[in-house]
Amino acid sequence: MAGKDAAVEADTGSTREFLVGLGRAFAGALIFSLPLMMTMEMWSLGVYIDPFRIALLLLVLLPLLVGLSLFGGIRKNTHIVDDLADALMAIAVAAVAAIVVLAMFAEIDPSMSWREIIGKIALQIVPGSIGAMLAQNQLGGSAEDTDEYGFSDAYGGEILLMMVGGLFMSLNIAPTEEIILIAFKMSTWQDIALAFLSLGLMHIVVYVVEFRGTHAQHPEESFFSVFARFTVVGYAAVLLVSLYILWTFGRLEGLSLEQALSLAVVLSFPGAIGAALARLIL
């Protein structure tokens, strides 16, 4: 009997833990996706962008979330299946949050086609699940086997984290019309200057100013080594993420290479700041 009681106790303990985790996940999903759920362009993008690109975005999302769970996170999972479970749970939480909020905003209702409803929800799952994932991993709890910031120091993990930080900022800005207007108004020289400014700011924020949670430069690492390995690679990753998001949203259609790059550079500016501060905001 005593053994059974202990088992029940352990079970209610894990149920409580699950509910707390679920609550955190919803909070994270909402804080990351609410700005986008209240952005008009996101509703229409869900409707008219290529269904294959929406499907691909969701396909890419899963390994990204698993990667976040692997490299970030308080909970040090012993099995990759636990990371997968965390990622899938984040997707479920983000989808439920999107359905509830969009239905309340009258942005999804039964008169709409399935294509419209699923498209709108699918796009919101992306920021929502990233938020849910990070909240499950980051808020509260105790750290074991991670460094003092809760992240492992693996190089791949660092670049992945920068990409997610860039993705989060880019996602918030890419749907807006303003990004196109800004890019069209800027001259090529301003584009180039903005790219250098992004690189410089990124490096300063991460390695010079040393915000809490950012990567401090080890004394034995030369400036050039850190700049080349982290800042340049990070910026390139952000640029690619920006191009991918712009392509997904159909923003590159009919543009010349110069205009497309200009858009990507403009979007990568907030993306670079997001990447640099990824450890702080994520």
Binding site: L58, R75, T78, L84, D86, A92
Partner: peptide, 28 residues
């Protein structure tokens, strides 16, 4: 050393998997 994902969490994960497969499948 074992999987520390609880029964409930697997339920939520299964729901997430279903949503993901459905959304990707529908769009494709």
């Amino acid at each position: 050393v074992q999987s520390r994902t609880s029964f409930w969490e697997w339920g939520a994960a299964a729901l997430g998997a279903a949503i993901l497969v459905f959304a990707i499948g529908y769009m494709a």
